[in-house]
Design a protein around this nucleic acid. Sequence first.
DNA 1: CCGTTTTCTTAACTTAGATCAATAAAAATC
DNA 2: GATTTTTATTGATCTAAGTTAAGAAAACGG
Lengths: 212, 212
Amino acid sequence: MLTKGVSLLFIGVVIPSPEDLAKLKEYISRFVSFNDEQLNAFLQTMEMKRVPKGTCLMEAGQVCDYVAFINKGHFRTFCIINQEEVTYNFSFEGNFYTDYPSFLTRQPSLEYHQALVDSEVLLVSYEKMQRTYQQMPVWEKFGRLIAEFILVRIAERNRAMLFLSPEEQYLNLMKSRPKVFEKIPQHYIASYLGIQPESLSRIRKRLSESKK
Amino acid sequence: MLTKGVSLLFIGVVIPSPEDLAKLKEYISRFVSFNDEQLNAFLQTMEMKRVPKGTCLMEAGQVCDYVAFINKGHFRTFCIINQEEVTYNFSFEGNFYTDYPSFLTRQPSLEYHQALVDSEVLLVSYEKMQRTYQQMPVWEKFGRLIAEFILVRIAERNRAMLFLSPEEQYLNLMKSRPKVFEKIPQHYIASYLGIQPESLSRIRKRLSESKK
DNA sequence: CCGTTTTCTTAACTTAGATCAATAAAAATC
DNA sequence: GATTTTTATTGATCTAAGTTAAGAAAACGG
């Protein structure tokens, strides 16, 4: 067995060690119960990859061919609309992420997945994921539960965008995802809220004045 | 076996006949292959219900306990925000719908599901759905595929709201869901786009003038 | 530690949509 | 088919966010 950190190729893919898989194991166990055999069948499909700060794990135009589990670091998902970057989401350590629409439909992605700090991810390819679904019912169930879990989160975002003003969304975000404010530059947050950095600045000013 | 249209109770629940299940069968077959035994195990869990125009299949405050397949008619999903109805979605004949967040998390729903014309739905309860998942792997897979399918649609809506102006969203909607414009009053569409009816009226005027 | 780059704030002005009010058009009801 | 109700349009005014531009603050890199 290879030891942690040994690079298979020059592109940063390594075989994960048991410690590398601990967080993922914990995450999965929140959704399904599994035995060692089942777990290993899934985990052995995974590759580990380092993603240096500022680089993209994926770029628009390609079909998103993996689901990533973030072992370390955090990411920003953005699209380019009229030559402007629009930040679509943030993803933190200990969570799965992918461009689900592209991954599922096999259509080219519109997204860029950019590491905001030096990061490390565990990757499963589409093909391996499908095979895993077929081989063991427990992973099929896991697939359903994950899809449902993410669906609920996206639906909540959806509602927030339709029902709340940018100011309300900002307050909402502070409550529901305080991590975002610890680690993410403010102009990305503005973009995530669908407004310009100047507007977020004004909203913050308005709020701090009304608090007095 | 009961014949079509026989009411079990006075609340409009009837046992569906084979013809009633034809559309649903066709819908399911787009996602998974199944044999008669598997199909019947699922279909026998379903109840049919008439929903008169203007009435709600569900109201906010209760946990959404069913998935509905619309056999006839169409629905509007709305929430009440600051004493105002905000239309969140439309659902048409031949599709599934539910308040997925409430159905999955077992938390009270925020939504109203209102029939816009006299309608007819096939219902599966949460409990029966979970049992069906456990009993036959094919339905577990179906559950995953449906969740993924809906997830992709919600994600697309999400992007539209973040990336497009109301005007662009309006044009988008005309292309992607022309049915909406055949059957839905304009002020509901405005609400769905996150704007006031007056604003949609102005957008339409602007567009018709720029076409000349 | 200093200079550069990135990020954030503020100001002046523009614009799209909100709000309020009135009316017109269409649909439903009797 | 006349009346009521619902739905759609238009105008005047207001407001929050966009845009452009400039400067301050913070983070970064050598």
